[in-house]
Protein backbone atom coordinates (compact mmCIF):
# COMPACT_ATOMS: atom_id res chain seq x y z
CA UNK A 1 0.00 0.00 0.00
CA UNK A 2 1.31 3.47 -0.84
CA UNK A 3 2.38 5.41 2.19
CA UNK A 4 2.39 9.17 2.73
CA UNK A 5 4.28 11.18 5.33
CA UNK A 6 2.27 13.99 6.93
CA UNK A 7 4.99 16.29 8.21
CA UNK A 8 4.43 17.94 11.60
CA UNK A 9 6.32 21.15 12.46
CA UNK A 10 5.92 23.00 15.75
CA UNK A 11 2.57 24.74 15.28
CA UNK A 12 1.14 22.42 12.61
CA UNK A 13 -2.49 21.64 13.47
CA UNK A 14 -4.22 19.96 10.51
CA UNK A 15 -2.13 16.78 10.60
CA UNK A 16 -4.73 14.41 12.12
CA UNK A 17 -7.48 15.34 9.65
CA UNK A 18 -5.05 15.07 6.75
CA UNK A 19 -3.84 11.65 7.86
CA UNK A 20 -7.45 10.52 8.14
CA UNK A 21 -8.39 11.85 4.71
CA UNK A 22 -5.50 9.99 3.06
CA UNK A 23 -6.55 6.76 4.76
CA UNK A 24 -10.14 7.27 3.68
CA UNK A 25 -8.84 7.74 0.14
CA UNK A 26 -7.22 4.31 0.29
CA UNK A 27 -3.64 5.22 1.16
CA UNK A 28 -1.54 4.69 4.24
CA UNK A 29 -0.48 7.78 6.15
CA UNK A 30 1.71 8.55 9.09
CA UNK A 31 2.29 11.77 10.99
CA UNK A 32 6.02 12.45 11.00
CA UNK A 33 7.80 14.88 13.33
CA UNK A 34 9.98 17.26 11.28
CA UNK A 35 13.18 16.04 12.92
CA UNK A 36 12.79 12.52 11.54
CA UNK A 37 13.46 11.07 8.13
CA UNK A 38 11.18 10.60 5.13
CA UNK A 39 12.64 7.39 3.82
CA UNK A 40 10.19 4.53 3.17
CA UNK A 41 7.47 6.94 2.04
CA UNK A 42 5.94 7.27 -1.43
CA UNK A 43 4.83 10.87 -1.05
CA UNK A 44 4.83 13.84 1.34
CA UNK A 45 2.05 16.09 2.57
CA UNK A 46 2.76 19.37 4.37
CA UNK A 47 -0.48 20.06 6.25
CA UNK A 48 -2.03 23.31 7.46
CA UNK A 49 -1.53 25.17 10.70
CA UNK A 50 0.78 27.87 11.99
CA UNK A 51 4.29 26.49 11.85
CA UNK A 52 6.61 28.59 14.02
CA UNK A 53 3.63 30.83 14.83
CA UNK A 54 3.87 32.39 11.34
CA UNK A 55 6.91 34.34 12.57
CA UNK A 56 8.73 36.43 9.95
CA UNK A 57 6.44 35.27 7.10
CA UNK A 58 4.02 32.32 7.12
CA UNK A 59 6.02 29.19 6.26
CA UNK A 60 9.39 30.98 6.17
CA UNK A 61 11.02 29.20 9.11
CA UNK A 62 9.67 25.72 8.33
CA UNK A 63 10.92 26.11 4.74
CA UNK A 64 14.48 26.32 6.02
CA UNK A 65 14.46 23.19 8.18
CA UNK A 66 16.63 20.22 7.25
CA UNK A 67 13.66 17.96 6.42
CA UNK A 68 12.90 20.23 3.46
CA UNK A 69 16.04 18.96 1.72
CA UNK A 70 14.38 15.53 1.68
CA UNK A 71 11.13 17.06 0.45
CA UNK A 72 13.07 18.70 -2.39
CA UNK A 73 14.53 15.32 -3.21
CA UNK A 74 10.99 13.87 -3.43
CA UNK A 75 10.04 16.68 -5.78
CA UNK A 76 13.09 16.09 -7.99
CA UNK A 77 12.33 12.36 -8.19
CA UNK A 78 8.81 13.12 -9.36
CA UNK A 79 7.05 11.75 -6.30
CA UNK A 80 3.93 13.60 -5.10
CA UNK A 81 4.41 16.54 -2.74
CA UNK A 82 1.25 18.27 -1.51
CA UNK A 83 1.15 21.45 0.57
CA UNK A 84 -2.13 22.56 2.11
CA UNK A 85 -2.56 26.12 3.40
CA UNK A 86 0.50 26.61 5.65
CA UNK A 87 2.06 23.76 3.67
CA UNK A 88 1.54 25.79 0.46
CA UNK A 89 3.27 28.73 2.14
CA UNK A 90 6.18 26.44 3.05
CA UNK A 91 6.42 25.28 -0.60
CA UNK A 92 6.61 28.81 -2.01
CA UNK A 93 9.07 29.89 0.70
CA UNK A 94 11.30 26.93 -0.18
CA UNK A 95 10.96 27.74 -3.91
CA UNK A 96 9.45 24.37 -4.75
CA UNK A 97 6.55 26.39 -6.15
CA UNK A 98 6.66 29.80 -7.84
CA UNK A 99 5.19 32.93 -6.27
CA UNK A 100 4.52 34.16 -2.74
CA UNK A 101 1.53 34.15 -0.37
CA UNK A 102 1.06 37.63 1.02
CA UNK A 103 -1.27 38.89 3.78
CA UNK A 104 -4.90 38.97 2.64
CA UNK A 105 -6.10 42.10 0.86
CA UNK A 106 -8.30 42.82 3.87
CA UNK A 107 -5.75 41.93 6.55
CA UNK A 108 -7.63 39.48 8.69
CA UNK A 109 -8.07 35.74 9.08
CA UNK A 110 -10.73 34.36 6.73
CA UNK A 111 -12.44 31.06 7.51
CA UNK A 112 -15.27 30.11 5.18
CA UNK A 113 -16.40 27.88 2.32
CA UNK A 114 -15.47 28.91 -1.20
CA UNK A 115 -16.27 27.73 -4.71
CA UNK A 116 -13.36 26.70 -6.88
CA UNK A 117 -13.04 26.14 -10.58
CA UNK A 118 -10.82 23.21 -11.50
CA UNK A 119 -8.45 24.48 -14.18
CA UNK A 120 -5.88 21.72 -14.57
CA UNK A 121 -6.87 18.05 -14.36
CA UNK A 122 -3.55 16.72 -15.65
CA UNK A 123 -1.79 16.72 -12.27
CA UNK A 124 -1.47 13.67 -9.99
CA UNK A 125 -3.78 15.46 -7.55
CA UNK A 126 -6.60 16.42 -9.90
CA UNK A 127 -6.97 13.51 -12.32
CA UNK A 128 -10.37 12.59 -10.80
CA UNK A 129 -11.90 16.03 -11.45
CA UNK A 130 -13.49 17.28 -14.67
CA UNK A 131 -11.96 20.27 -16.45
CA UNK A 132 -13.96 23.38 -15.53
CA UNK A 133 -15.80 21.58 -12.73
CA UNK A 134 -16.91 23.75 -9.79
CA UNK A 135 -16.14 22.31 -6.35
CA UNK A 136 -16.50 23.48 -2.73
CA UNK A 137 -13.85 23.54 0.00
CA UNK A 138 -13.15 25.70 3.05
CA UNK A 139 -10.35 28.25 3.32
CA UNK A 140 -8.83 29.32 6.66
CA UNK A 141 -5.92 31.72 6.37
CA UNK A 142 -4.55 35.21 6.95
CA UNK A 143 -1.80 35.01 4.32
CA UNK A 144 -3.32 33.52 1.19
CA UNK A 145 -2.99 36.41 -1.23
CA UNK A 146 -1.11 34.73 -4.08
CA UNK A 147 1.36 36.90 -5.92
CA UNK A 148 3.66 36.24 -8.83
CA UNK A 149 5.40 38.66 -11.15
CA UNK A 150 4.69 36.43 -14.15
CA UNK A 151 1.33 34.57 -14.01
CA UNK A 152 1.86 33.17 -17.53
CA UNK A 153 4.60 30.92 -16.14
CA UNK A 154 2.45 29.45 -13.36
CA UNK A 155 0.51 26.19 -13.65
CA UNK A 156 -2.83 27.23 -12.15
CA UNK A 157 -4.84 24.30 -10.74
CA UNK A 158 -7.78 25.90 -8.83
CA UNK A 159 -9.22 29.40 -9.10
CA UNK A 160 -11.70 31.07 -6.72
CA UNK A 161 -15.00 31.34 -8.57
CA UNK A 162 -18.70 31.87 -8.02
CA UNK A 163 -21.00 28.83 -7.85
CA UNK A 164 -21.31 28.80 -11.64
CA UNK A 165 -17.56 28.79 -12.18
CA UNK A 166 -17.20 32.44 -13.19
CA UNK A 167 -13.92 34.00 -12.12
CA UNK A 168 -15.09 37.28 -10.59
CA UNK A 169 -13.65 39.93 -8.29
CA UNK A 170 -16.44 39.22 -5.74
CA UNK A 171 -15.45 35.55 -5.62
CA UNK A 172 -11.85 36.44 -4.75
CA UNK A 173 -11.60 36.19 -0.95
CA UNK A 174 -8.05 37.41 -0.40
CA UNK A 175 -6.83 39.47 -3.35
CA UNK A 176 -4.92 36.68 -5.12
CA UNK A 177 -3.71 37.55 -8.59
CA UNK A 178 -6.07 35.96 -11.21
CA UNK A 179 -8.11 34.44 -8.31
CA UNK A 180 -5.42 31.77 -7.96
CA UNK A 181 -6.15 29.28 -5.15
CA UNK A 182 -3.82 26.38 -6.03
CA UNK A 183 -0.75 25.99 -8.23
CA UNK A 184 1.49 23.15 -9.34
CA UNK A 185 5.10 23.04 -10.44
CA UNK A 186 5.87 22.64 -14.13
CA UNK A 187 6.04 18.86 -13.87
CA UNK A 188 2.80 18.67 -11.87
CA UNK A 189 4.02 16.52 -8.99
CA UNK A 190 4.17 19.39 -6.48
CA UNK A 191 0.85 21.05 -5.60
CA UNK A 192 0.09 23.89 -3.23
CA UNK A 193 -3.51 24.68 -2.30
CA UNK A 194 -4.86 27.32 0.08
CA UNK A 195 -8.31 25.64 0.32
CA UNK A 196 -8.35 22.64 2.68
CA UNK A 197 -9.29 19.38 0.87
CA UNK A 198 -9.13 17.43 4.15
CA UNK A 199 -11.92 19.62 5.53
CA UNK A 200 -14.08 18.61 2.57
CA UNK A 201 -13.53 14.87 2.81
CA UNK A 202 -16.74 13.70 4.40
CA UNK A 203 -20.36 14.51 3.62
CA UNK A 204 -20.92 15.28 7.32
CA UNK A 205 -18.40 18.11 6.94
CA UNK A 206 -20.50 19.54 4.11
CA UNK A 207 -18.60 18.27 1.07
CA UNK A 208 -16.58 15.36 -0.23
CA UNK A 209 -15.04 17.36 -3.06
CA UNK A 210 -11.65 17.38 -1.33
CA UNK A 211 -11.53 13.62 -0.93
CA UNK A 212 -11.11 13.19 -4.68
CA UNK A 213 -7.85 15.13 -4.47
CA UNK A 214 -6.48 12.54 -2.04
CA UNK A 215 -7.92 9.69 -4.12
CA UNK A 216 -6.18 11.07 -7.20
CA UNK A 217 -2.90 11.38 -5.31
CA UNK A 218 -3.11 7.85 -3.84
CA UNK A 219 -4.09 6.30 -7.16
CA UNK A 220 -1.31 8.12 -8.99
CA UNK A 221 1.31 7.03 -6.44
CA UNK A 222 0.14 3.43 -6.73
CA UNK A 223 1.02 3.25 -10.43
Amino acid sequence: MVKFAVVVFPGTNCDFETERAIRKAGGEAERVWYKTSLKDFDGVVLPGGFSYADYLRAGAIAARQEIMEEVKEFAREGRPVLGICNGFQVLTESELLPGALRPNRVPRFICRWVHLRVVDTETPFTQFYEPGEVIRMPIAHAEGNYYTDDPSKVRVVFQYSDEKGNITEEANPNGSIMNIAAVANERGNVLGTMPHPERASDRFLGSEDGLRLFRSMVEWARR
Partner: peptide, 9 residues
Protein backbone atom coordinates in the same frame (compact mmCIF):
# COMPACT_ATOMS: atom_id res chain seq x y z
CA UNK B 1 18.40 36.88 0.35
CA UNK B 2 18.14 33.54 2.17
CA UNK B 3 15.69 34.32 4.96
CA UNK B 4 14.99 37.85 6.18
CA UNK B 5 13.42 38.96 2.89
CA UNK B 6 11.56 37.24 0.08
CA UNK B 7 13.37 38.56 -3.02
CA UNK B 8 10.19 38.23 -5.10
CA UNK B 9 8.31 40.85 -3.08
Amino acid sequence: RKLLANPLI
